[in-house]
Design a protein around this nucleic acid. Sequence first.
DNA 1: TTCGCAGTACGACTTGCATCGTACTGCGAG
DNA 2: CTCGCAGTACGATGCAAGTCGTACTGCGAA
Lengths: 123, 123
Amino acid sequence: MSSTPRAWTERTQRPVPAGAPEPLPEPARDALRLEAVMGALSDPLRMHIVRTLLLESEEFDHTCGWFGLDRPKSSLTHHFRTLREAGLIRQRQYGLERRSHVRVDDLQARFPGLLALVADWRQ
Amino acid sequence: MSSTPRAWTERTQRPVPAGAPEPLPEPARDALRLEAVMGALSDPLRMHIVRTLLLESEEFDHTCGWFGLDRPKSSLTHHFRTLREAGLIRQRQYGLERRSHVRVDDLQARFPGLLALVADWRQ
DNA sequence: TTCGCAGTACGACTTGCATCGTACTGCGAG
DNA sequence: CTCGCAGTACGATGCAAGTCGTACTGCGAA
């Protein structure tokens, strides 16, 4: 079940599969704010989430549970919402679960080099 | 009295003039933390300070007053200390005044591309 | 030595955020 | 229909940070 992940630099955003649900509300590319993005990444847990999503994601998006984070569900909801509202991740509701991926194209376009910093982050 | 500022990308850190006071306490290059740096930059006023220091500084460092910020002095003390403790700026005490500059070399070495994002920031 | 000034230190207030428990929602399996 | 589960919503709590007034410090000029 594990397809080999491409390097994130080579993985431009995947085409959206037909019939995928609409993304949850998020800021448009032009509305992304560098301070807000950096504020979202100033929390180590959120930095970890984005970095993991960037480096270890496969062909499909991932649910909150996939990360194996040892925090209550309500805390994860909070952090994922923070990341989405800052524009770092896109979330779609697939039936029961909410799946996330990094907005690679938008972030590269607006803040070139930022994701490279995240990828190089050492805990 | 305005010498032409070089572009920040061409201005590697100036040699320290002989007899300059020691820098105030700051994290060493290896101790810089990306989350902390981003946390410091998540405040628009601090982002503005760093960007101004990066783009409009001259051959010498600058005092808090130079920025012409319309805030009480105690607020500025707070923000400059935050920037110094996160490792973004270096501060030296010259008699009465405390002068600051961006730690260009350290930041470029540890977080390449980060200062370019700051320079491109639009208020 | 006296004064003015740059900046600090301290403390109070307020706001925002992280954390988490609990109740709830809504889809899908059986 | 009923149950279980992923995740949300809500609210309480505690803490960290932003804001700012006031008192203070310490250098340098007159």
